[in-house]
Every structure is written in C-alpha cells, then in structure tokens.
Design a protein around this nucleic acid. Structure first.
Length: 258
DNA sequence: ATGGTCGACTCTCGA
C-alpha cells in the first residue's frame, strides 16, 4: 500500500500535476492540503477521471483538506471535536480506508512568533494529542500526515542556526510537537531516509531553491508502531517542482506492506 | 539581499 501527502496550494490550480501524478504513481491514498476551495466547487470529476474516490472539507480562499483513494473510505470525520472556539473543519479530515486510519492535517502556520496565530498553532498540537487519544489507541493502524508546518530536527532545515525561532522551527513548537508525537507516533520517512537534505518544501520566493538545497521538511508521515513496522520505503517526489508552474511543496510518499 | 512568487479574490492576505 502506497500513501502520500501533498500541499497543493489550490487543488484547482494544481489539477494538471495531481491528475498526472495519480495516474502514474497510483498511490492507494493521497492526502492533500491547502485545497483553497469550497466543497460545492471541489473538482470531484478530475479525480474520478483517473479512478479515485475523493472526500474533502474546505472553505473559501484559505486552507482546505482532501483525501483521494482507490478504495472508498468506510468513514470520514471532519474537524476537531472538542470545545474550543473553532473545530477548524478545513484543516483536518480523518478517514478509515480498509482498516487503515488516516488523519490528514493542515496545521496552522503561525505567521509570526509574536502573532496570536503562533499561540493558536501551539495549542493546535495539544488539541491534536487529545483528539488522537479520544478516537484511537497507539495499537491502531494509524497514520498522521499532512503539512504539519514543523521541521522537527536540525537536519530538517537547511540553516538550523539562522532559522531557529522561525514559526516552523521554534523551541516552543518543538516541545508541543514532541509531546503530541509521544502519544504514539514514529517518523516513517526518517526511518528510511536518515540522511540530511531531504526536504518536502522549497519556498518559491527563493531562486533555484531546489538546486541550492534551501528546503524544509515540514510535510510528514507519522505512524503508530503497528503501522510503522510495516513500512518498507519512503521518499520525496519532486515532480511538482519541475512542472511549468512549480509548487512550493513536493509529494512525500511511503510504501507499507499491508 | 529582511527581498523574492504564487493563488484566490478583492484591490490584500496568507504562505
């Protein structure tokens, strides 16, 4: 089973890349973030044309998540079901596909460490830990994936000294992220790619960022032990960066022997 | 080099 994650930065603008990649890579499951489209306008037909089911939860202009899959999900859950001000329905969608539970998240970026949005981001990871505990156990076959907007380790950024303190590479963030991961997740990607310079995001404001290796690893595939144990490979697919209109993000992919 | 480029949509914001 092949599972992948991709921040599309508009699912409609990225349809040529998405159709082509699904058609050739044939993942069992593709999790998408930043679809930037309301549900009524989601391009369902483009996914069906290449043989995929697709479920989604979006809003106008910002955010938005979707899951494309060869097999139809048995169940779909949208938003965080706690008592906080917003369920953030356009940032989290959870599915059960053939007994594999997948939680696809677009974690708030944070904007600036001085912004209330950064505190909201930190709280998001705490809410997520409770969310996992409410709906799953670490013994489940569970994958937490998506654009998590966190580079966990020094090797996950191209310049750890200069970037320390950035909203995606910050000690407070690392603390809450580690706390959520400690609920029961393993980094499936790092298990197979222990070497540096494996990045999932290249800011397209930085000229030739791919060639100069000026990237970040902020898109992740994290699995509970029973699922992580079955993973056989993981890699970054740079195809969206080679396209005519390049995307900031890459596909992050993993194979599971299930 | 504290810039740069996208995307959605309103004339600006988020990333």
């Amino acid at each position: 089973m092949k599972i992948a994650t991709f921040n599309a930065n508009s699912v409609r603008a990225r349809l040529p890349v998405l159709s082509r990649w699904l058609d050739s890579a044939r993942p069992d499951i593709l999790c998408i973030q930043e679809t930037k489209v309301e549900n009524k306008d989601f391009p369902v037909g483009a996914f069906e044309e290449v043989g995929y089911h697709v479920v989604f939860s979006g809003e106008k202009k910002y955010n938005g998540v979707a899951v494309a899959s060869l097999d139809k999900p048995r169940s779909v859950r949208v938003g965080i079901d706690d008592n906080e001000d917003s369920p953030d329905e356009a940032r989290i969608i959870a599915v059960d596909i053939n007994g594999i539970h997948v939680v696809n998240t677009y974690v708030p970026q944070g904007t600036d460490v001085e912004s209330p949005r950064f505190q909201y981001k930190l709280r998001w990871f705490k809410r997520l830990k409770e969310y996992f505990a409410r709906h799953y156990t670490p013994k489940d076959m569970l994958l937490w994936t998506g654009d998590l907007n966190v580079a966990p380790e020094p090797m996950d950024v191209h310049d750890p000294k200069r970037l320390l303190g950035h909203v995606c590479y910050h000690p407070d963030l690392h603390k809450v992220f580690a706390e959520t991961v400690s609920w029961g997740f393993e980094d499936v990607f790092r298990k197979h790619k222990p070497d540096p310079e494996e990045y999932s995001f290249f800011d397209y404001r930085v000229p030739n960022s791919v060639q100069r290796k000026l990237g970040w690893r902020i898109d992740h595939l994290l699995a509970t032990p029973p699922l992580a144990k079955t993973s056989t490979n993981a890699w970054i697919d740079l195809e969206p960066r080679g396209w005519e209109r390049p995307s900031d993000h890459t596909f992050v992919v993993s194979d599971f022997d299930v």
